[in-house]
Amino acid sequence: MSTDPSQALLLECRRSTQTDTLFPYNAAVVTTLVRQIHTIHAHLVQSLRSAAPPSDEVMPTPTPPPAIMFTSTHHHLQIRRLKRVLLVYHAHRLHMLRAMLHRAHLSVTHLLPTIRPLLSPSELTFIRSYAQITMNYRAEFIDVLDIAASVDEPPKGMWVNVRVVKEVGEVITEGGVVDFRKGGRYLVRRGDVEMLLVQGYLEVVD
C-alpha cells in the first residue's frame, strides 16, 4: 500500500469504476494535495528567484546552472502530476454523477436523498444545474418522446410482469385503473409503469 496520498485518490477512482459506486468525497486528501502543490510551488519560485541574476546585471548565461534546472524541472513535474490527479478525481466523480442522474431518469429529487452525504458542495450545485440543463434539452422532445426513459435495453414486448414492492395504490393507466397492492403481481404496459419501476415501487419479474 502506497503512502502517497495522490495514489489513494487514483485508487479510489479505480475502485469506484470497478464497483460502479460513488464513494464519499475525500476532502481530506484533496486538501492535502492542494497544500502539497502550494508548498512545491513556493520552493519552485524560490529556487528560480535565487538563480536569477540581480536585475541590474547583464545575464552572463542564458540558461541557469544545471542544479537549478534539475530542481525546478523536478518540482514542475511534481506539480503537474498532482494537478492532474486532482482533476482526474473530480472529473471522474462528475461523470459518475451524470451517469447516476440519467439512470434515475433525470429526477434529481429522487436521486439526491441517497447520495447527498457523498457530495462536496460544488458537486451538489453541479448535479442540480445539470438536471436543469438536461431538462431544458428534454423539453425539445417532450411532446412526442421522453428522452429521460431508459435506453439500456431495447423493448422486447409491450407487456411486462411486475411485482409490487412498496404499496402504490390506484394508478390510472392507458388501459384503465390499476390498484397496485403490496406483494401483488400484475401484467401491465411497460410505458405506464416506467416511472414506478425507477422509483422502486415495482420490480420486473421475468
Partner: peptide, 13 residues
Amino acid sequence: EESLIRDVVGNLP
C-alpha cells in the same frame, strides 16, 4: 468548469 474551479484549480497558485 465551475465545479472544477471551486474544488481544484481555484485553490491553486
